[in-house]
Design a protein around this nucleic acid. Structure first.
Lengths: 230, 230
DNA sequence: CGCCTAATTATTGTATAAAATATCCATCCG
DNA sequence: CGGATGGATATTTTATACAATAATTAGGCG
């Protein structure tokens, strides 16, 4: 009853359609790194594996292409799309530009229950951090950021940010598990929350912008250091 | 050789696949207003009309849903999505926020040939304006704005703006043919171009922002006046 | 008379199979 | 010996056929 704006992250069960189930399964595999960028996705192999025909697989691939996670070339099949450093930088710059604006609109409408939900999300995040579960980390980070913007009243912007966060997820999960940046992110989340609670919205928005810029720069550096992704 | 970033507006021929052809045909119908918002799209009807099976139609609908032009509800079919006033306002606010940023990045890299291309686009726009061809107007407006951002070097942002412009197209075509705003837009396009040519990039970006805000507010007012969209 | 229930129907979703297209490799010609 | 050309193969794309789901309507009950 709360996060239906983009209809994307349906949890585990409740799949009205096979195509939807395959979509979610494939997305999870890509985001978790089980399927690496550049890897080819053959329809019949996936169909056999999921015990469905190739049509739901095709539709799943189409939806994932729309999300930017795979790239389809006509008659040549689908591959897991690899974000270049430029594209990752762009995604973070977009977030840094959009999210603070939306936070200003959203934060004024937070209710007590919203704060409760946000704190609970942040706590889950901290727990996941302690246990080193990177997969959960990405998902929780995404949900926290989206929850911050819940009441922004700008559906299209919200959907775009949601999609950007999804694209951040993968490179982050792949490369960031080593660094200490998740801990800093956790702290910054807390600060943002406190600033909102004390109604210092402008400062909260400003911190959010820096928070995103920090995460972006850190990730870019890691990428640059490890290799030169095409 | 110039506008392949989002792989969307392929002109007429050169369709490697049926699904692609159907996608383009349907998109044109929706953008041109031949299919009105809220209208239901039945798969077998479309399949018969295009003389293909339902599968290419299904894939076309999926791609159009990714573009935001139709909404698919599982087991309930697809309808032409109607943008609410809020959503339209959001689209314009996003454009007003993003395009000036990107113009600053892009304009510095304009070559003589780029200016030639831009002026040619603007002239086509003026001609279409004189002849009252609204359909061309939307397309040319979109191409002009995209050409302005050509060298921004931010692929994801560029793709998003491209999609936003597409979404502007439809409401604009439907509702703006009466007003005199297209003429003003034409003039503002010229001014933006001149400011770029004289390397006053900041002023150009600022004018672009106001240009978009003007267009948005004008459109919103027309919407509000004519009826209350859901 | 209104409302709930059950069968009917229309429409979407999926499976299987055939057609089309691109890639790869061997062969042939210059 | 190099490059091009033709066919074989693997894969995607489309068509046909079937199953499942949601809307609708008719019928029965309170």
């Amino acid at each position: 009853m709360s996060d239906d704006t983009t209809s994307q992250p349906r949890r585990a069960i409740s799949h009205k359609t096979m195509a939807g189930a395959v979509t979610d399964a494939l997305r999870e595999r890509i985001l978790s790194g089980a399927l690496l960028p550049g890897e080819q996705l053959r329809q019949d192999a996936l169909a056999e594996e999921f015990a469905v025909s190739r049509i739901p697989v095709r539709e799943a691939l189409l939806q994932l292409e729309a999300s930017g996670l795979v790239k389809i070339m006509p008659h040549r099949g689908a591959v897991v799309s690899s974000l270049s450093v430029d594209e990752i930088a762009d995604v973070f710059q977009l977030r840094a530009s959009l999210e603070p604006q939306l936070l200003l609109l959203s934060a004024r409408k937070f209710t007590a229950q919203d704060y409760q939900e946000l704190r609970s999300l942040k706590d889950e995040y901290s727990v996941a951090l302690d246990h080193g579960r990177v997969a959960e980390w990405g998902e929780l980070n995404r949900r926290f950021h989206l929850a911050l913007l819940k009441h922004c009243g700008r559906p299209r912007s919200y959907a775009i940010v949601s999609s950007l966060l999804q694209d951040c997820d993968r490179p982050t999960r792949l490369q960031l598990s080593v660094s200490g940046d998740v801990a800093r992110a956790d702290m910054e989340h807390s600060e943002i929350l406190e600033l909102c609670a004390s109604r210092e919205f402008d400062r909260a928005a400003d911190l959010l912008r820096r928070h995103i810029e920090n995460a972006g720069q850190s990730l870019i550096e890691i990428y640059r250091r490890s290799a030169t992704g095409s």
